[in-house]
Design a protein around this nucleic acid. Structure first.
Lengths: 204, 204
DNA sequence: ACCTGAACACCGTTCAAGT
DNA sequence: ACCTGAACACCGTTCAAGT
């Protein structure tokens, strides 16, 4: 059972880290986060064994929130706009949070908690994709794993111009969505990624 | 006029930086690069005022090579496969060079040399796109600037699984190319980026 | 059991001293 | 004019000393 001040410090650290990471990205220093939380630098390493561990914790929270969004969309929205809104939600998460986009590529899937959060997201994406496929509004050869990997693409593509055109990502999201339509489908040269691919990529 | 040893050190540094950056990405240390070039750490800053300046120099070389590829494709290949080979070349550049993909997002367009190299690449891309558009093999609302921004997307999307599936980027390149087809076109919600957008994004 | 801050090995960058 | 390596301010991380 954790001590009272320890539990409080942990939550202060998570709040501080969320804010600092979202504002300044992954390069923000542990000193800044500790200062914002009002604790000593060493305390951070008492709760998280490394900076990556702290970043992973925040990253998991965001993945979980996105998965939850997908799950409710699946129940309350028609297949076409459910998938579209899901991908829009993923993109908006990145627009509002500098670190999320960076974390997608930098954070290792080797971490168990990240794996778990990714898996939940993948399941939500697969369910959304399956219902869209069944309704005939998405091409047959696209899977939920594809959708997960595509989530951050529009924001990344528009990132170099984000300072001048903050809504440009919507253009590329639509371009990608057009590529997902059945009428656009031409045979893809490589098979979709599998659960095993994610597993072996994580261990390297 | 530069001294003989200075000119030699500069070229040794560029070679060493190219190799180290391509193997280890942007996070590689100046010490490593200096050691590989066989010079002292301080010498690096004698030739490049900062690490970013050195990275920019390498980045420009790569942008230039890609632009040259685009220019020869324009002359010697039919419009459809010219555009496809151009985007494939851009993706392959990133697969073979860890730093290039990172540099696309991290390197500032404020740097004059980077701007110049980007402009040349944009012109090549625009020429390729125009001829593809004229041939009716690409949708009418897509511009050369779009193509430049899309160049790195497929590699980025596949990056989390690159360790397990090194050719997965081809899947997403084709998915993006399908989205560029005229028969897939649906109205895009946001206008294409302009030269001015690139200019103002650079100054911020 | 947890917090603290000094200490450590690194990093990019600067600069006085050499040639 | 350029090279060198010691010095500086930072970083993430460790850990002995406190409570």
């Amino acid at each position: 059972m954790p001590r009272a001040d320890a539990a409080r410090n942990r939550s202060l650290l998570i709040d501080a880290a969320s804010a600092e990471l979202s504002e300044h990205g992954l390069d923000v220093s542990i000193s800044r986060i500790a200062a914002r939380a009002g604790v000593a630098k060493g305390t951070v390493f008492n709760h998280f064994s490394s900076k990556e561990e702290l970043v992973s914790a925040i990253f998991c929270e965001q993945l979980g929130a996105l998965a939850a969004t997908g799950e409710t969309l699946l129940e309350h929205t028609d297949p076409r706009s459910a998938l579209q809104q899901f991908m829009t939600a993923g993109a908006e998460l990145q627009v509002n949070d500098r670190s999320f986009c960076e974390a997608v590529t930098a954070t290792s899937r080797a971490h168990p908690a990240v794996r778990a959060a990714s898996d939940r997201l993948a399941q939500a994406a697969e369910a959304l994709t399956a219902s869209a496929r069944q309704a005939g509004v998405v091409r047959a050869d696209v899977t939920g794993h594809d959708i997960v990997l595509l989530l951050g693409a529009a924001t990344w593509i528009a990132a170099p111009l984000a300072a001048a055109r903050s809504d440009l990502w919507r253009r590329y999201l639509h371009l990608i969505l057009d590529g997902l339509r059945p009428e656009a489908a031409h045979e893809l040269p490589v098979a979709a990624p599998t659960n095993e691919d994610f597993a072996t990529a994580a261990t390297r």
